[in-house]
């Protein structure tokens, strides 16, 4: 009579471990392929890191060092890994000044015609992660409600394109936005008040 051997417990555990590792590795690879969602990263940064301490400026650490800090914080604060990676992507994207914006063509400096609207640019660059715009937003930066009542458009344009020109200590990232993008964002901010 054929007898089935009882599976070795340690063998089962090892097999399970291999499956878990393979699955998590595949998931991590998938996550790495996805484009970084700056808006979500900014919001998660505000929600999670601000829970224990002031949000530190993205430029305080280099791109190369943020992963070490974020991983340590992930372990201390019990952050889900996917959220930690999104925060890391936001910080690295907002860290060192990116290459200067490239020219888009003769008319690009005016207003984007049929591309991304100012509202869409606000979402893509994650402005709402730190600022209240309209009815929603984070609290790392000041609320932008009534912004045009407090500041001239010229001042706001400079703040968006070269934030440290107004305040060397600002946490606001230097995204190197083009004139076209800045104009579109200005219009959207004006409409959102």
């Amino acid at each position: 009579m054929l007898r089935l051997r009882r599976p070795n417990a340690s063998l089962v555990l090892r097999a399970l471990l291999v499956v878990v590792l393979a699955a998590t590795s595949a998931a991590a690879n998938e996550a790495e392929k996805a484009p970084p969602d700056l808006a979500r990263g900014a919001r998660l940064y505000s929600d999670n890191c601000g829970r224990c301490h002031n949000a530190r400026g993205p430029a305080e650490y280099s791109d190369a060092h943020w992963p070490l800090i974020v991983t340590h914080m992930r372990v201390i604060a019990g952050l889900p890994g996917e959220q930690a990676r999104t925060i890391e992507a936001f910080l690295r994207a907002s860290n060192n000044p990116p290459p200067p914006p490239r020219r888009l063509g003769r008319l690009a400096a005016v207003v984007p015609a049929a591309g991304l609207s100012g509202s869409e640019l606000i979402e893509r660059y994650g402005c709402r992660g730190c600022h209240v715009i309209g009815d929603a937003g984070g609290s790392i930066g000041p609320s932008l409600r009534g912004l045009f009542e407090r500041r001239q458009a010229d001042w706001i344009r400079v703040q968006i394109q070269t934030p440290r020109e107004h305040n060397a200590k600002t946490l606001m990232p230097l995204y190197g936005l083009s004139d076209a993008e800045t104009s579109a964002i200005l219009e959207a901010l004006r409409a959102a008040r």
Binding site: P35, P36, L38, S62, D63, A64, A89, R92, A93, S94, N95, N96, P98, P99, P101, L104, G105, R106, L107, A108, P112, A113, A114, G115, L116, E120, L121, R124, Y125, S178, A180, E181, A184
Partner: peptide
Amino acid sequence: DGEVTPEYVDERIEEFETA
């Protein structure tokens, strides 16, 4: 005509991720 396309913004964001 110089419109800011989603592809343009995505490419720039990905450029940030090269360090």
